[in-house]
C-alpha cells in the first residue's frame, strides 16, 4: 500500500496517511552547510514546503531560521522518519539531521 504524504494547513504540519505526524515550531539541529555558515544549524521549523519519500525514509524541505546566526531560507531534503510496517516512526528530534548528499 502506498503512503499518503501531504503538507497541510499552509505548511503547518506533515500528514502521513491522514494523521498529523510532524509539526512546525520545533528546533532541529542540522548538519546543512548549504543552509548557513554554522557547523550545526539550530533551525526553527516555520513552514513545511514539500514532503517526499526516499525508499522508506520520509523527507521534508522546510522554511525556517537558524537561531544561531539568523539565516533564513528553505532547506534541502531532510529526513524526519521512516515508514516501518506501514507505520511512520519519527526520528529522535534531538538528533542531528543531515541533508541528503547524492
Amino acid at each position: 500500500m502506498t503512503t499518503r504524504l501531504r503538507v497541510l494547513d499552509d505548511g503547518a504540519w506533515i500528514s502521513i496517511d491522514d494523521g498529523r505526524e510532524v509539526r512546525v515550531s520545533e528546533l532541529w539541529r542540522l548538519d546543512a552547510p548549504d543552509f548557513c555558515g554554522c557547523d550545526l544549524a539550530d533551525l526553527v521549523v516555520e513552514n513545511f514546503q514539500e514532503v517526499g519519500v526516499d525508499g522508506s525514509r520520509v523527507e521534508v524541505r522546510v522554511y525556517g531560521q537558524c537561531i544561531a546566526c539568523g539565516e533564513t531560507g528553505i532547506t534541502d531534503w531532510l529526513p524526519v522518519g521512516r515508514i516501518r510496517g506501514g507505520e511512520f516512526v519519527e526520528f529522535d528530534r534531538s538528533c542531528v539531521r543531515r541533508t541528503r548528499r547524492d
Binding site: D9, G11, A12, W13, R23, V24, V44, N47
Partner: peptide, 8 residues
C-alpha cells in the same frame, strides 16, 4: 499555540 497549528 493555544489552538493554532501554525503557531510558534
Amino acid at each position: 499555540t493555544e489552538f493554532c497549528s501554525l503557531s510558534i
